[in-house]
């Protein structure tokens, strides 16, 4: 089966800093792949390289076997790559409903041409992520947890084939985390492949089918969540070396 995403030897330099260093991995269809790593490991850069807001210094990203090299972000979105932002970026002056409607108007396949249809779909998407009560509110009036869900609804309204989640659980309480996990599972059950960046280890361990660890821009582990988290290098990356 063709992988949903193939990351092939991708490197990204910012002047002297190598944010992502020769990283390769696959995202299989209907898989939930968790990406973890300490601060500054290159996780968000990786998502930006896939969604097209940054270009790789070298290497290539393939979507369903097709190279995305040189393709602008909006065309990747129309192919079916949806992303959320870690620093939540709603369209602040628009209502919650219209924020999501933008995704339905422009997303996968070019979206709906009709505003009424797009709003209808947006409403359904907001119900799905649990923001059904806030449709008429302005997006900048939502609190942090609400904005996280809004980011998710915006990306889902694009009807993506691949969803890239950048820390959608950061700052949420345990109940909210469980709710978001349930939403992401349902998304996967609908046939979408998901890449999740997360800091909350416990949450991502139960959610992911597979776990990938970045450290200083390099991939240091990739495999079953339990074995990855038991891996000595991974433990050292997070906690440092034990000195006796």
């Amino acid at each position: 089966m063709t992988p949903a995403l193939e990351i092939r030897n991708v490197t990204r330099r910012f002047a002297g800093l190598i944010a992502v260093n020769d990283v390769s991995f696959l995202l299989q269809p209907r898989e939930i792949l968790g990406v973890i790593g300490p601060n500054g490991a290159g996780k968000t850069t990786l998502i930006s390289l896939i969604s097209g807001t940054l270009a790789p210094t070298s290497g290539d990203v393939l979507f369903e076997g097709q190279s995305l090299a040189g393709m602008p972000a909006y065309r990747r979105a129309r192919l079916g790559i949806g992303r959320t932002f870690q620093i939540m970026r709603p369209f602040p002056g628009l209502s919650v409903l219209d924020n999501v409607a933008v995704g339905a108007l422009f997303g996968h396949g070019g979206g709906h041409a009709k505003l009424a249809k797009a709003r209808e779909q947006a409403r359904a998407q907001l119900e799905f992520v649990g923001l059904g009560k806030f449709v008429d509110q302005r997006a900048d009036e939502l609190g942090g947890p609400g904005r996280k869900r809004l980011e998710l609804a915006k990306a889902l309204a694009m009807q993506p084939k691949v969803l890239l989640c950048d820390e959608v659980m950061a700052g949420l309480n345990l109940v909210e985390i469980d709710e978001v996990i349930a939403v992401i599972r349902k998304v996967r059950d609908a046939g979408i492949s998901v890449l999740v960046i997360e800091h909350v280890i416990k949450a991502i361990k139960s959610l992911s089918d597979r776990l990938l660890v970045l450290h200083h821009g390099e991939k240091i582990a990739d495999g079953e969540p339990d074995s990855v988290l038991a891996n000595q290098t991974v433990v050292e990356a997070y906690l440092g070396k034990r000195r006796i």
Partner: peptide
Amino acid sequence: FGLIAIRENEEGAEVMG
């Protein structure tokens, strides 16, 4: 809507297509 999305957040608009 595309124009308003650009005004509100250009990068956000771009990744939404």
